[in-house]
Design a protein around this nucleic acid. Structure first.
Lengths: 135, 135
DNA sequence: CTGTATCCGGTCTGATACTG
DNA sequence: CAGTATCAGACCGGATACAG
């Protein structure tokens, strides 16, 4: 079970699987932030089939701004989900590729995606009922 | 695979599992928002063992403010993850309980939590390497 | 006990312009 | 091509006060 207690020093911690974490160093938060981020999972899935160049990712996800694509790629690289390779051509080209960790992450994300599509009818139905009841 | 294309009307859509969605009506977004939210998964896990009262949830998650607990419970109720029952006592008491959908959701969240704790060492290591390289 | 209402600062995101 | 810099609006989350 998941519960939260106070330490002797009155510091608030979460206890997950018998181990205590503060909000700032909670491993679940680190991962959940990446799952919940607006573009993270889309990019991870875009890299599922192998290395992809920056411009190719932009074409796969036209909604994303250049700024957000760069920033999200940096975040994912920082956490070790993907590797960035610069080819010294003119003009430069850059490839992004999932690491082993990234592929492992993809493997746990895919079930979530599947569950989402499987259950979105129920969610939308519940939402509609709720919204009508509130009116 | 997951890709994004433009329709004839130049509207941007995501194609997931062969079905097109706009950013606003994407089922994966609906679920990912609930996974990524700061308190959602904590509350879902808090309800794993059965109905829990509002005040009991507060004690389980001391970090959460009353405002956020109420709001997150509303969001989860709206999407059909949990059921709210008011007992007409004085003072009133309210119980929250996972629905079938909520339990199903919990079942897909738990692997993610497990993966997080299993891999957080690798993530922190990658992050440290990256941050030192950037210095 | 279980909420609602209000304010407010920080963060996230997008648009735009500029660069090696 | 693949970024970086800057700015502004939306949004999230917390603190506080109040209420049925």
């Amino acid at each position: 079970m998941n519960q939260i207690t106070r330490t002797a020093a009155a510091e608030k911690v979460m206890v997950i699987g018998g181990v205590a974490y503060t909000m700032a160093n909670c491993p679940v938060r680190d991962v959940l932030d990446n799952i919940g981020g607006k573009w993270n999972t889309l990019i991870i899935q875009g890299l599922a089939d192998g290395p992809v160049r920056f411009s190719a990712l932009r074409r796969m996800i036209p909604d994303i701004s250049q700024r957000m694509l760069t920033q999200t790629l940096r975040d994912l690289q920082r956490d070790g989900y993907l590797k960035r390779t610069v080819f010294p051509t003119q003009p430069p080209s850059v490839e992004y590729e999932l690491t082993d960790l990234g592929q492992s992450f993809l493997a746990i994300v895919l079930p979530v995606v599947a569950w989402s599509t499987d259950n979105h009818e129920r969610i939308r139905a519940a939402r509609k009922v709720y919204d009508e009841g509130v009116l």
